[in-house]
Design a protein around this nucleic acid. Structure first.
Lengths: 217, 217
DNA sequence: ATTAATCAATATTTCAAAAATAAATTATAA
DNA sequence: TTATAATTTATTTTTGAAATATTGATTAAT
């Protein structure tokens, strides 16, 4: 079971990542109260958490805003994700045991299933694809041995994902292939190659997003 | 000027870092209200922010606790700080302009002044040493060009500092020398050597803290 | 016409008090 | 002793209102 607080946290965070609350838009407390039927204090607690996590900007005495989009921000987040995820992947491939390997196989299998039936822009599927995509990347680095590293990475993953989802729904075959490469080299414990394709994976998504950046705003 | 919210945030965070609120201790809302004379909602907002930042643990329906100490946690944080600060330092040494260099010289000078008159365990001085130590490390990486990187690093710096301050007040001449090495190689734009001494700097502090770990709890 | 100052409207911030809900403790019965 | 029920305690959530700051519009002054 969830408390009201934690479930509205999840809802608002989700709505920011999926663009239902648009980048840079003002988060008026009264209006939020209509869409998320909880009390003001609960909403303020949620927004305070989200601002610590970079999804919301809190301007003193002026209220809350969804974090805006910018090229620079996107590039920074992509590079930080590469830095942390590469580091974690390297550790994970050194330490991963049988359980880790089993989970990775399962996560990759589930992701493959959904990626193959994804004929773009099906809203329902995008949301569950997000879930399996995340679980695959998490499974890769799960054996890195550092809870703090995983939690920092999780935050960057979500912030990167927000750009990906809002700017472009899904990148298609290219991304599927990259996932396969990361997967195969991970099972071989070939850290250098796995990291190489992880970088390609994130950088390709970055390029895609940057190209679309001006079109959408 | 500060809002009541942001100034209690600073106070509570400071008290956690300096150990006035002890690791793993329960943060009862009523008691906090006595020590920090603000309303319950303000306190809860603060604790929610601090829990997103890793200083506080929020257990659903069971309240808030100061994040506990553990060897594993300390090691993880030290390694993450090395990872992020090395990365940032490397970028900064590539990009730093005249202003950056001037600020670094100033920051190092101020730090030197205070480090030389630090005859250990003077409580007032520890607090301003923390400030100048932080400003020196920040000055080093200031030209890295990534706001997100600096803000992630700032969080890890504070969490690492909490262990350092609570476990050992000050490490003395050794640390001063390390600061000087980082400084000198930074001015020479010798990233490899600067990073090498940065690692030594953090790892020595880590060893020190780990050695003392059992004595204090 | 532009700038400054004033006033009203709007929104955020903060507080206080109480109802709802869950956890922890104690007392009771098997 | 164990399990269950009742009590106490603490957190979570809501409500409503007061204090404070910002915004926008109106008016006055340069």
């Amino acid at each position: 079971m969830d408390t009201i607080g934690s479930s509205t946290y999840k809802k608002i965070k989700r709505d920011i990542i999926f663009g239902e609350l648009k980048p840079a838009s003002k988060l008026k407390l009264d209006e939020l109260k209509k869409n998320y039927p909880v009390s003001l204090s609960t909403i303020r607690e949620t927004l305070n958490r989200l601002s610590s996590e970079g999804f919301v900007i809190a301007e003193e005495q002026r209220g809350f805003f969804v974090s805006p989009f910018s090229k620079e921000d996107l590039i920074e987040i992509a590079n930080l994700r590469i830095l942390l995820e590469s580091y974690a992947l390297n550790l994970s491939l050194k330490n991963g045991d049988t359980d880790w390997e089993g989970n990775l196989v399962a996560a990759h299998h589930k992701l493959s299933l959904i990626e193959n039936k994804m004929d773009n822009k099906n809203k329902d599927i995008v949301e569950s694809w997000k879930k399996y995509d995340w679980e695959f990347h998490l499974a890769c680095i799960a054996a890195c041995g550092s809870k703090n590293l995983i939690s920092l990475h999780s935050n960057l993953f979500d912030r990167y994902l927000r750009y990906q989802i809002i700017l472009l729904q899904f990148r298609g075959d290219e991304a599927i292939d990259e996932h396969n490469q990361i997967y195969n080299f991970s099972l071989k414990r070939d850290a250098d190659s796995a990291i190489k394709f992880l970088k390609v994976h994130i950088e390709k998504g970055l390029e895609h997003a940057l190209a679309l950046f001006k079109e959408q705003t």
